[in-house]
Amino acid sequence: MDDFVRRTVSIDDVEKTVYVSGAGPAVILMPEMPGISPDVVRFARWIRAAGCAIYLPSLFGVDGAYPLAEARETVVRRACVSAEFRAFAGGGTSPVVRWLRGLARLAHAECGGPGVGAVGLCFTGNFALTMALEPAVIAPVVNHPSLPLDDPGGLEISDEDATAVAERVARDGLQVLAYRFEKDSWCTGQRFAAYRALLGDAFDGRVLDAETANPDPPPFFRDVVGCAHSVVTAHLVDQDGHPTLQARDEILAFLTERLRTRPE
């Protein structure tokens, strides 16, 4: 990650490491479980090449490492009991989202432009939506959101925040782009239906055939996740015309159109 600047960012007296790179309007890319893997970094570089400044916060795991199956015990269980996250039904909005909204305000102040993009992945998938309570966030992308872990049709959001998000989306004409694989047991069709019920036509949920997923992902995704899940990272196939690469291009187009960027 030598092409990123490692910064310590303090928001509301809470410090976190954030990797920053590129120029243009800002995009906050949140890592998937179990951390900032090389596949997440690759996706960050693609966003940067599309003409965006990338802000990649470290929220859990080992930065820059390929995720091993052992991360289930060392990272996942720790995150599930952390006060920053609400991994299970009934917990409401994860407190870490407040910090992420502050990061979006900071990034917008530093980079300018019409607003900020927010891209969530897996464990952080829904964070991109709840970050939209920050006015600077105008391009939310919700990728294969896995929380709450114990309710396949649930959304990781409090009732109050859900109402506020739906009002903001309707008032400002926001669109929410989302992806999942068919047969994904961590992000089900029931969950996408719940998003649609909350947001109506503003929710653009797209589903890829599970058979198109990378058949040889890193060990954590093979042994722990156990199904086609990570559309633009671990299960992406980097081949022209491939459905997962098309999904990546659609996300980049969504971000650049709303943030009005120019690719490198």
Rank of each mutant, 00 (worst) to 15 (best):
E167I: 07
D63Y: 06
F192I: 05
I28Q: 05
F85T: 09
L147M: 14
V18Y: 01
R260G: 10
I157A: 13
C187L: 00
D223E: 15
I28R: 06
P148C: 00
P219E: 05
I36Y: 06
A247N: 01
A170I: 00
R248T: 11
T93W: 08
R101W: 01
E32I: 07
L245R: 10
L59D: 01
L129R: 12
L198N: 02
P215N: 04
P145N: 06
V237I: 11
N126F: 03
P57L: 14
S10W: 05
P219V: 03
V20M: 07
R77T: 10
E32M: 12
E156I: 00
S21F: 00
T188Y: 08
L177R: 07
G115P: 05
F4C: 13
I138S: 06
P148E: 03
L255M: 01
E250K: 09
Q239A: 15
F192M: 07
T8N: 13
V76M: 14
S37N: 01
D184S: 02
G205C: 04
A136W: 00
S158Q: 07
A53V: 02
A23N: 13
F181S: 05
E15H: 09
I47H: 01
A164N: 02
Q175T: 10
P25A: 15
F254A: 03
G113T: 00
V62L: 07
A162E: 10
V76H: 11
W46L: 12
L259A: 02
M33Q: 13
S94H: 02
T256C: 14
S146K: 05
D184K: 05
I251A: 02
T130V: 06
Y19T: 05
V81P: 12
M131R: 04
M33E: 12
P218M: 09
R222P: 00
R191V: 06
G154E: 04
G154F: 08
K16F: 05
E167A: 15
E182D: 11
L245T: 14
Q246R: 14
F192H: 14
V142I: 04
G115R: 08
L29A: 08
A89I: 00
G120H: 01
I28L: 15
F220Y: 15
L155F: 10
V116I: 09
L68T: 10
L245N: 03
S185N: 15
N143Q: 14
V119K: 04
P38M: 03
E211M: 12
R77M: 10
C52S: 12
S158A: 04
D216H: 12
A194C: 06
R101F: 06
P31F: 13
L106N: 08
S10L: 09
I251D: 01
L29N: 05
T188I: 02
